[in-house]
Design a protein around this nucleic acid. Structure first.
Lengths: 189, 189, 189, 189
DNA sequence: TATGAATGAGCATTCATTCAT
DNA sequence: GATGAATGAATGCTCATTCAT
């Protein structure tokens, strides 16, 4: 009976999505270290369900952010193509990245932390975001718009750190600071 | 017996200092979240003694870093006086601040985190570091070396965040990024 | 449609056998306490199927060992008939029993444990193995080869216990010890 | 204040003893795998106290049985001295060992299990009981009372196994079976 | 019948915090 | 003041068991 199986799978998928949403919400509220129980409760499922879908916390964290990370990655080539100059593309891409980071409370910290068990997320960053950023930096370097010696990885980490917000240092501040950092990267013409 | 009272007080003071030193060491090794017991053990005292002297972890954290924060604060006017330009003073002061932050494992994160219970430390920063930094920024503004609109508090937070190091993003990287940020703050002449 | 019913029943029977084989294998590898899920996985079925066929773990354990227990039981009269003396028959039968026990990781312990929920297995032992063993003991008693007062049930339990192997006490040791026990049962002639 | 310290230490010692007694009782009732909480509850202390005194379950198990194991060990030379023959000494010692084992529900199983984490207990057995038993076996061998080839370790494991009692296989049965095993070890004269 | 997703009780373990001495 | 034993809440994680499809 492929139909009932499909129904069940669909239900399972919905459950999984529910957990992801709940996790995202809880991460925003209480950080990435929030108790699994809280996530389960928020999702209206048992803890076992969370563990079934995401055996480790890192799996959960990675899954929560994967979509946005992928979207961010995909944005780079498009911006490069559409923008007047590579540096403009870099700035726009950085804006998008910051938007993403400041929305996801705790991800900046997560990316920055050496927390073992978050290698997944780290790897994801290395595998997708770093190359995306590097392509922009390379393009900038080609037009000599960019001060040499800026590594993609380091820049991403720095931006990630700058996006760790809190009371009195909000999203607007983070954006400003990232903008300053980028300005510092620009070659004086 | 005023004398024995003095002796007792001196002993108590030594105990307190011992705890502070131990806490500083443990914070470096294992971060600000290290178990109180570890600190007590390192200090060679009972946990009760730690709690007596520093009822909350925030008290302990604040006390540990107060000296360095104060030293950093005191540095500002001196640098302003001795340096060729206000911006140079700002750069030197920033260097010192970064040195302080990257040495203290976890303090950057602590400053950046909205962790309630660290308001003490936050207040200390507001009360001493922010004015010190502001005085440098003001001096820079006066000579138009500085892009306007850079708030002392926000800048300090940004620097604090940039100094959250980890594997693959070390102290040298943090210094580089802070330098870029400062460069971005400079007015294009 | 009697035919399709037959087909379905045959399929069900095959499923049941598959679970039994898987359970036997898993019991050997990881002991009688192995997670039900592991057994289901090994059998290539869902956990629900395991539970449908064997509502309790005891049912499963009993079913797994029933064949061998029955075979062991059936061996007794044959050995009695073929052997030179009843004691020889007893020794041979004991050998077979030990072979069975040491091969089945954990069964000795299961037999020996007072684990409620294994009454099934216990009952099976009482109903079949004990009479089989008793027939051999009776025959030995008749020829005065056996020290009187050795109860079949007690002897079986003792042998079962001696067959609880582990590191540094392997199957060979178990066999040796059982042999010594039997020697101790023999009447000094 | 050495006095109040002494008082506190005495209290701590009492607590520790209480935990040991509770653990012994719980082990008898529910086996060595009983939940730590149950032990704590039985002892009237918090779980933390159990963990403070016995960081691992193995520590607890070992401590529970250490006294009796030591007593048993010390008995060997005395019996050897006082008994008419080495074999008599062996028999008496074995009796004492069995008395010990059958009283401590679960220890036999513990000794026999390959449970990692019980290496402590195992080591204790290797270090003290095995030599004690070996001394008796050597003495027996010297008088040719003993069938050669019986290793102390194996014999102890066998006795341990035989002392795994349960419903329908009680302490008396265990003693009988051990006696038979010993009889089987004796040289036919 | 078979499936396997979901549930949640159960257990181990850590650690902040209190308080009698 | 100093001590550190005791407490127990909090949390991670496993796995037996149920039940809708």
């Amino acid at each position: 009976m492929p139909e009932s199986v499909g129904v069940r799978q669909a239900q399972a998928q919905r459950t999984r999505s529910g957990v992801l949403e709940a996790a995202a919400a809880v991460f925003v509220d209480r950080g990435i270290q929030a108790p699994v129980r809280d996530i389960a409760e928020r999702a209206g499922v048992g803890v076992g369900t969370v563990y079934r879908n995401f055996p480790t916390r890192a799996d959960l964290v990675t899954a929560v952010y994967r979509h946005q990370i992928d979207a961010c990655t995909a944005l780079a080539p498009r911006l490069l193509e559409e923008s007047a100059s590579p540096f403009t593309a870099l700035a726009l891409w950085t804006d998008a990245f910051v938007d993403f980071l400041v929305t996801k409370h705790g991800l900046g910290a997560a990316l920055g932390s050496g927390d073992p068990g978050l290698e997944n997320l780290h790897a994801l960053m290395l595998d997708t975001l770093v190359p995306a950023c590097a392509s922009l930096l390379d393009a900038c370097a080609a037009t000599e718009e960019l001060r040499p010696g800026v590594a993609a990885y380091t820049l991403l980490r720095a931006i990630g750190n700058l996006c760790i917000t809190g009371p009195d240092y909000g999203q607007a501040d983070a954006k400003d600071m990232v903008a300053l950092l980028l300005a510092g990267c620009r070659n004086k013409v």
